[in-house]
């Protein structure tokens, strides 16, 4: 049974308020049957230093990625990951994490590839929960093993591959990396480990909207009107547009995917997880450098 929706007025303005909960809602619902809280961080050790009571950890590098092929885990492995954390197909899963929920939205996106029905983000994530002085613990939860069905991953609806992006050239794209990565400057730092791409720049036609512009100072998502000012008014995107978002490996762009899809109600947004580490290493794909969008 899905838990009731958070009726907070700020959330109610978003296109899909059922995809978010506030810290107040989570504090009131902690421990409820049918709820599992998942922490997903950039820092692989952060959960272990203390977490929301009862929350389980999902690490994207070591758990959501296939260890050999550059791909996500398959349905069988996903079923194990969920089952051992007490997540059934009916469970309400609330994700939270560090860095403006960057990795939490990534984990939610991967859960969405498997069509998990009730996934939500804790607005403000770990930072807001901690800033409000709410309870944290380092006590490891002991979830009961449950059955999760083996679901075939849907790679067509919210995920884009390189071939899809090539076919998409000329239509709306959002590059969510930093301005230096977008222009191509960041590949010119000698001696130090690089971003892992042999060419710098962006996919021609892509708009530059660094992902964190969607986050407020307190790590919550900006109110709907402010998000519309950025993506609709400033960048000229329309909710009916087919949009591809990308970054370096698809993590920051899952944050933008969440914003466009669930907060602004765009119906056709795909995340290109190959992102710059694939595009910037590919032979004969078009690249634009500098601050202009360029065209293919």
């Amino acid at each position: 049974m899905a838990l009731p929706q958070d009726t907070d007025p700020k959330l109610a303005e978003y296109a899909h308020p059922e995809r978010l909960v506030t810290t107040d809602w989570l504090a009131a619902n902690l421990g409820a049957a049918g709820l599992v809280v998942v922490e997903s961080d950039e820092d692989v050790l952060l959960y272990d230093t203390g977490h929301i009571p009862g929350a389980v950890k999902v690490d994207w590098h070591t758990e959501l990625n296939d260890p050999v092929t550059r791909d996500y885990v398959d349905g069988a492995r996903f079923a194990e990951i969920c089952g051992e954390r007490g997540i059934t197909r009916d469970t309400t899963v609330v994700f939270y994490g560090d860095r403006n929920n960057w990795w939490a939205t990534y984990a939610l996106w991967v859960f969405s590839l498997f069509g998990h029905p009730d996934v939500r983000i804790l607005d403000g994530g770990r930072a807001k929960w901690v800033a409000e002085g709410r309870e944290m613990t380092s006590e490891a939860p002991k979830p009961e093993q449950v059955d999760y069905p083996v679901i075939e991953r849907d790679d067509a609806t919210i995920r884009a591959f390189k071939e899809d992006v090539l076919a998409h050239l000329g239509r709306p794209m959002v590059d969510v990396r930093s301005p230096g990565e977008y222009s191509g400057e960041l590949l010119h730092m000698p001696e130090y480990p690089q971003e892992g791409a042999v060419r710098g720049g962006h996919i021609p036609g892509a708009a530059s909207v660094p992902w964190a512009r969607a986050a407020a100072e307190d790590a919550t998502f900006k109110p709907r009107a402010e998000l519309e000012a950025i993506y609709l008014d400033e960048q000229g995107l329309e909710p009916d547009d087919e949009v591809v978002a990308y970054c370096r490996i698809g993590e920051r762009s899952s944050h933008t995917w969440f914003v466009l899809t669930h907060l602004l109600g765009f119906a056709h947004v795909r995340n290109y997880d190959g992102s710059w580490t694939e595009w910037g290493n590919s032979v004969r794909v078009p690249i634009a450098q500098g601050t202009e969008r360029g065209s293919a």
Binding site: D43, L45, L46
Partner: peptide, 9 residues
């Protein structure tokens, strides 16, 4: 910072 335990490690 303390919220970066891996980097601290």
């Amino acid at each position: 910072p303390p919220e970066a335990p891996t980097t601290r490690g």
